[in-house]
């Protein structure tokens, strides 16, 4: 999923001059992916540690 999100961000980088909101949105997207990924990993670790 992290690889897919990187591909999406890399792809939308091509159109960065098509509007300023794109550059902000891609960082919000990446931040969201990272946060959800960390939370999911935490629950997986908790599950495996019990």
């Amino acid at each position: 999923m992290l690889i897919i999100s990187w591909v999406i961000v890399f792809h939308c980088n091509k159109y960065k001059d098509q509007g300023i909101a794109l550059s902000y949105a891609k960082y919000i997207f990446l931040a969201g992916i990272l946060i959800v990924f960390i939370v999911a990993s935490t629950y997986l670790i908790l599950f495996l540690s019990i």
């Binding site: 999923m1 992916i33 959800v36 990924f37 629950y43 997986l44 599950f47």
Partner: peptide
């Protein structure tokens, strides 16, 4: 419960994308 929450957050990754 932890397993369920793990799957839910994996699902959230796709919804976010």
């Amino acid at each position: 419960l932890y397993l369920l929450l793990f799957f839910y957050f994996v699902y959230l990754l796709f919804v976010w994308a």
